[in-house]
Design a protein around this nucleic acid. Structure first.
Lengths: 224, 224
DNA sequence: ATCTGAATGTCGACG
DNA sequence: CGTCGACGTTCAGAT
């Protein structure tokens, strides 16, 4: 890992073309050859970058200008024209053990599979990841009357999720052994437009409380 | 901008929970208070981070352990337990002039609006961003026979874009003044599944050559 | 290798 | 300030 603070000008040509005027920025050169250009603000996203695998070549022109030419896989090129280097240091980091996550959609699905009745009175699980020709339905359930219920789970419920569930329901309802199948759109948060679309299509919405579900679950069975 | 290389252990609690075991990493602390944790590999995305606005507080426990507590807006917290600092430097960067882009979907739409006949023989433009209740149609055109044609433009044609165009067509075909409206799905690259879905729904696919379109366009009218 | 859906997505535009 | 769609999306998992 090499960290450079330099006044530089940058041009990128690849899937798009982009240009950064001369200014002072941080250049992060990782061990795999990838390069990140950060300014003092914005977000975690660099102003510009080159993804690995790629290689950096230093070019010095006749008039003494230093340029770093970063070339990637396809026709991606990042040209960094260096005017002045304020800082330059290299560091040995080693391999990172990596990130452990908890609280993503998969966990929500696991919890709802264990407690389907929180979605609707008397709901019982038939199976998780119920397979169909166009992909698996998150939860296939049966209601108190024994009718099929397809559940689509999202962390954040938006219009795409309703579209997805609609496709499943359309397909499932062609199967006379299952039909009629109704749908429940479950999410920790449901956007108004998604709710309107779901309601218009006769799909029920269920807002899920992740922490409450965790409370129902065995508290010893945690990641950390 | 402060750059720190340190052996550290990190816990994040916010929209999800995440944990990073003790290892050597780069910590980037930006002027707006945001913090990025990078390893020597991966991609431009940090292992962990805190978006602005947020503040960093240094806490030293009784046994001398140093911890940085980064708190954000809501209940987001990032705890960085520092074991050893290998490098620590601060730099004045100033405000960045920002990025200039060229070659995104908007530009593709402009080019196709100027040359609609490249999509289908005899096609003429009615208007760009044709408004409907569920959002604007990229291009509304008329074919040689004077029938309406709705065009959805994507850089990469995937299933979502076909769904979007399907919604527009469904709505537009309810208007007796426009109906029948047919659809063209235009993209630089169309994924097989998207093509299958489009064809199944009677929507034509058009693969667009960006460079060729640019060639038709006035070459003096460039961004830089 | 390709494809698909998720994301602490982020970012910008528009109402 | 929320909503929506694009993104050099990136990313991980499954086929």
């Amino acid at each position: 890992m090499r960290l450079v603070v330099a006044r530089c000008q940058i041009d990128y040509a690849g899937r798009l073309s982009a240009h950064l005027p001369m200014a002072t920025r941080v250049l992060m050169l990782k061990a795999d050859g990838s390069v990140l250009v950060h300014s003092d603000g914005g977000s975690y996203k660099p102003l510009n970058w080159m993804s690995p695998p790629c290689s950096v070549k230093e070019v010095v022109s006749e008039d003494g200008q230093v340029e770093w030419l970063v070339t990637g896989k396809a026709e991606d090129t990042l040209r960094i024209l260096i005017e002045e280097i304020h800082h330059d240091s290299s560091h040995e980091l080693g391999v990172d053990p990596g990130l452990q996550k908890d609280g993503v959609e998969k966990h929500l699905q696991e919890l709802l599979a264990e407690h389907p009745a929180t979605l609707a009175e008397g709901l019982t699980l038939v199976r998780r990841e119920y397979p169909t020709a166009i992909g698996p339905v998150d939860l296939m359930c049966r209601d108190a009357e024994g009718r099929s219920v397809a559940v689509e789970i999202k962390r954040r419920g938006e219009i795409d999720g309703v579209e997805q569930l609609t496709r499943y329901l359309e397909l499932l309802n062609r199967d006379p052994l299952l039909a009629p199948v109704r749908g429940i759109f479950a999410a920790q948060e449901i956007k108004p437009q998604a709710r309107v679309l779901a309601t218009d299509r006769g799909i029920a919405c269920a807002v899920v409380d992740y922490d409450a579900l965790r409370g129902l679950d065995d508290p010893t069975d945690r990641l950390f």
